[in-house]
Amino acid sequence: MSAHAPAGLARTEMVCPKTIAEACAVLAQAHRDKRAASLLAGGTDVIVDRHLMPIEKARPLDLVVDLTGVDELTAISERDVAGERHLVFGGGVTYWQLRTDRRVLAAIPMLDAMAKDVGAVQIQTRGTLAGNIATASPAADGVPALMALDGVVKLVSEGGARTVPLDQFFLAYRKTVLAAGELIAEIDVRVPLPGARVTWRKVGTRLAQAISKVALAGVIEEERGTITRARFGVASVAAVTHPLGGVRALAEGKTFKALDRATVDAAIDLEIKPIDDVRSTGAYRLHVAKALVWRALAP
């Protein structure tokens, strides 16, 4: 064993609820008891963070609520919302489920493509959509894909439930609207219309086990040449996953031919100011984001 282990390991209790209600009750109780509690799903973010945390910064946890035994969270279902087809994913749905679920493969192949680009198989079998969303990393891949699909999350707590559109879920770098005692029960996405232009393109540090330098998801629908819907999610270009609302506003209602590269680029310039970090440069990210958006929109 390498000489590293999270501090306070021995005092962390784990509970393994079987239902969402049970999980919420445990969370609420911990909150009332002022115990430091955390949800745990695939652990692909939590356990890495805890393990790599320098010992002097490690914050001991009193309670971990393991969600991997909650079957409700792994369900994939369909529903009809105002005549449109939606898929609903339990928060515990893994990337591997996305890659192997027939309905998903048929309805939204983009999610399969995205899931295939996440880490590698061992990450895909564990990592969950809710974990991806709750971690709120700007480099997350699941989030932009779900955002472009008009994702809406359903947050459940002991006291009740609320829904929040994904593009309003993130407040700032790694800050979300998720309150103590709440968990992500579901993510609802709208199935793009047949014939929609659906894009997924991840530019990572390599072809697997890669953190995105830029990733773009896009759903573009048209009716007789006019763009009726242009939704995006883009990773790693801002403090949070960005919906590129300016580009959406620019494109929706126009024909493809009426769009030109310079105008679209200018809209992107107004929205994002990517930064330099150990993985890439701001200039490169901006360039790539523009190129990918243009590939999605080009006539």
Binding site: M14, G43, I47, V48, H51, I123, R126
Partner: peptide, 21 residues
């Protein structure tokens, strides 16, 4: 992936799984 094991038949990284799970 050097720590890969199968958990209920699917490959996982055992460095990312809490034994309580």
């Amino acid at each position: 992936g050097a720590c890969s094991v199968m958990l209920d038949g699917v490959p996982v990284n055992s460095c990312l799984v809490a034994v309580g799970q």
